[in-house]
Design a protein around this nucleic acid. Structure first.
Lengths: 244, 244
DNA sequence: TCAAAAGTGTTGGTTGTACACCCATGA
DNA sequence: TCATGGGTGTACAACCAACACTTTTGA
């Protein structure tokens, strides 16, 4: 690729890791895969893999996402770069710099295991992060590498970003009701919101929601209007997260 | 460093690039260095360099910052990771992934040139980005590599971050007046703010400012109280950027 | 008929903004 | 005494939280 001597600079391995979040059963869940080989064999980790020589970072992330979940970005899901992790000791094998990406996806069918992973699953983020003395979903081991920190950073990004952007719609199917969108906010923030004020707020913000004309009763009760995500990406005024 | 075969993964060069912002002469300025060797010889670029094998990304950024400016982080200045840029074509020599960092610094003495840079200077970001048909500070060439995009991303991050955090104080000397802090906001956002409402807002936000007891008349007019940055990092309520 | 969820109206407190006004210094 | 920037008071408008109330379905 170049006439340069590779020994003139320290060589790094570069990977992408994915924080894939969804809302299922009224809880914020993340995709995790069980590692099939050392190090951390048998432990849960975030999906990811090496960046190839001819692809951009976001292309690598989209490729890994498709390989692990069958999900294509730009198909309702949202993908953005999260942060980069490069502690010299983060991988015991070699010097690896990982560019973490955040994916917000609607509730998906059961994940497929791929590559070097024995299995894959959705797990509530509280479980994966070992909050409240919960175990980590069957064993007490935290996530492999620094993936616990990466996941925590991704969750915090998602929590703050749905406040001032319309990204919460990325957790919803193509058509959804105001109540379904509200349950997304409640799951991500872990709070209860007033249905009446929420309804007024989201329908009053221009460009956030576009009515499709249809209705549904899939949540029970009175039929609810169906909406699609509107073109607006920034919410003004923002959705205010209640005090803790 | 490891028993692994380096040919098992594609090797990358990893660098840190720095967006160093300050406010001088009532304008938001960025540090740029003139390149002394190809590619882009003679063009302006952001300071930066290779990450060493034994250092973390933030350590590498702090080291480069000290080498280029003599500035130590944690000495009033703020350093945070910005984003990572890894387009395969971004450096014509080889595959380079650059982890950009953002530095907010008080007005500094003239920068020192270091390393492979012929010279270094502060320039208004509007000039460096070629806004409003301005040239790029003496010649019409944009910044080298993708540094124009990196700088634009850093400026946007700074503009939004002073809205909901106390980071604007990083642009001020250790002791400063409310008026000086207001001029920082005005320079970064490029707007005029009401001095009366601004005063009430910042002094009313607990933990933002701590009075030192001293006063100064260095801005002329009635003596102004001096403040230090308080412990709070998140502003609640945020400083609202006026509509465009 | 009842429970459940959708949606509207109203009210009262909080917050932001605009701007009149006073204060303390240097020139 | 005047210009300059620092700082306080106040009134109006916009906004938000709380909650009573009506609507429309399935069971």
């Amino acid at each position: 690729m170049s006439p340069y001597d590779p020994s003139a600079f320290p060589p790094f391995a570069v990977t992408v890791d994915l924080v894939v979040l969804t809302v299922r059963h009224h809880a914020l869940c993340a995709l995790s895969v069980r590692r099939g080989e050392p190090p951390f064999q048998g432990r849960w980790a975030l999906p990811g893999g090496f960046v190839r020589t001819d692809e951009d970072l976001s292309q690598a992330a989209a490729r890994e996402l498709a390989e692990e979940t069958g999900l294509r970005a730009q198909n309702g899901a949202h993908l953005e770069q999260l942060a980069t992790y490069g502690d010299p000791q983060r991988d015991p094998r070699m010097r690896v710099v990982s560019v973490a990406h955040l994916v917000l996806a609607p509730d998906l069918p059961a994940p497929r295991a791929g590559g070097d992973a024995r299995s894959a699953r959705w797990a509530p983020v509280g479980t994966l992060l070992g909050e409240n003395g919960q175990d980590h979903g069957g064993d007490t081991a935290p996530l492999a590498f620094d993936h616990g920190q990466i996941l925590a950073d991704g969750v915090e990004r998602a929590r703050s970003k749905i406040e001032y952007s319309s990204l919460a719609t990325a957790f919803c199917p193509p058509e959804f009701t105001v109540g379904e969108l509200r349950r997304v906010y409640e799951a991500v923030w872990g709070v209860a919101l007033d249905p009446r004020n929420f309804h007024r707020k989201v329908t009053g913000t221009v460009g956030f929601l576009v009515p499709t004309g249809g209705t549904t009763t899939r949540q029970g009760g009175r039929p609810a209007q169906l909406f699609r995500a509107g073109g607006a990406t920034l919410l003004n005024p923002p959705m205010l997260r209640p005090e803790v």
